[in-house]
Computed example of a mutant assay.
Amino acid sequence: MSKMSTPAMKPPAPITPPPPQPSTGSLSPKKVGGKFSLFSHIKYEHMVAGISGGVTSTLILHPLDLIKIRFAVNDGRTAAPQYRGLGSAFTTIFRQEGFRGLYKGVTPNAWGSGSAWGFYFLFYNTIKGWINGGNATTPLGPSLHLLAASEAGILTLLMTNPIWVVKTRLCLQYDNNVDPKCDKRYRGMIDGLMKIYRTEGFRGLYSGFIPGMLGVSHGAIQFMTYEEMKNAYNEHRKLPIDSKLTTAEYLTFAAASKLIAAATTYPYQVIRTRLQDQNHTYKGTWDCIKKTWRYERMPGFYKGLAPYLVHVTPNICLVMLIYEKFTRN
């Protein structure tokens, strides 16, 4: 009996899996419709680099900062010490208050500078990364650099202003014979924070905040100038804008950007320092501006500029160099 032939069976067609659907349950901020994509650009090495640079520069250069503060508040109408110049200030403070006198306020200064630079670099690079979508080779331009730096400055000031108030007041404690239990005499940063809050409330901890907000423009101008100079230099060399530079090039751009920012915004620092000084009494920012103009005219707004430039130029060079080297890929 002959076998019946059956038609050959065709192999089944391969099953094409459906295209993957976007996940809705993932906690990754990159995948939730971009709603929290800002958080995907946070890189904590920027904070660590900023803290390292801020603390290092403060420990080295604090005496210059102290002298700048004392020059800034000297309006000729209070019993503040009189110094003929930068060298005179150094020798007078050392002779009258010893080596420790040159480092009054160094603890809150180190805390403030470290946290301020840490937060600033964290916020600035996070905002910048969010704007350019994480592509470091995309130039933002002056306006977006200015925007990112301004936003970072405001956030940083909100978090650090109380530390700057204590630092300023510790730097302005001239007489070592004053009763340490006095409400305007501070034994250190924590004691200062507690006494200011107890006697002046929350408002006292945010003395000088308004001119500090104006001072955000200082950091914004500085960082915009720094970034634009780096970008223009790399474009001139026909290299990607995120290409690394030499130590000398970083130092040059950091110093130039700081000098430009200081020349345009320094008066706010005088007003802010005077508002934070426990030895002066002003009704507010505008009252301080009017009195400074009435008694000292324009030079009053630039008191302490020389020690400030001597202090901040190496300061910003150290901070930016440590930051750039720390975050080198």
Rank of each mutant, 00 (worst) to 15 (best):
K3Q: 14
M4G: 10
P19S: 12
S26F: 07
P29D: 08
K30V: 00
K35I: 11
S37L: 02
S40T: 04
S52Y: 02
G53S: 06
L61M: 12
H62K: 11
D65W: 01
K68V: 09
V73C: 08
G76H: 09
T78V: 13
Y83N: 07
R84C: 11
G87H: 12
Q96G: 07
E97P: 03
G98I: 05
G98E: 09
K104C: 10
P108L: 06
Y120P: 00
F121I: 05
L122S: 01
N125A: 10
I131T: 02
G134F: 14
T138S: 11
G141Q: 11
P142S: 14
L144F: 10
A148V: 03
L158I: 05
L158Y: 01
M159K: 14
V165K: 03
R169M: 09
D175G: 07
K184Q: 11
Y186P: 03
R187A: 15
G188E: 08
I190K: 15
I190L: 15
I190M: 12
D191T: 04
M194Y: 08
K195S: 10
R198I: 12
R203P: 00
G208T: 14
G219T: 04
A220T: 01
I221L: 02
Q222F: 08
F223Y: 01
M224L: 08
E228T: 09
K230F: 11
K230T: 02
K238Y: 10
S243V: 04
S243F: 13
T247S: 12
Y250R: 05
S257Q: 07
A261L: 05
A261W: 00
A263M: 12
T265M: 13
P267F: 11
V270C: 04
V270H: 06
H280A: 11
Y282N: 03
K290A: 15
E296Q: 13
Y302A: 11
L305M: 13
P307S: 12
V310D: 07
L318N: 02
L321R: 04
Y323W: 02
K325C: 02
K325W: 00
T327R: 05
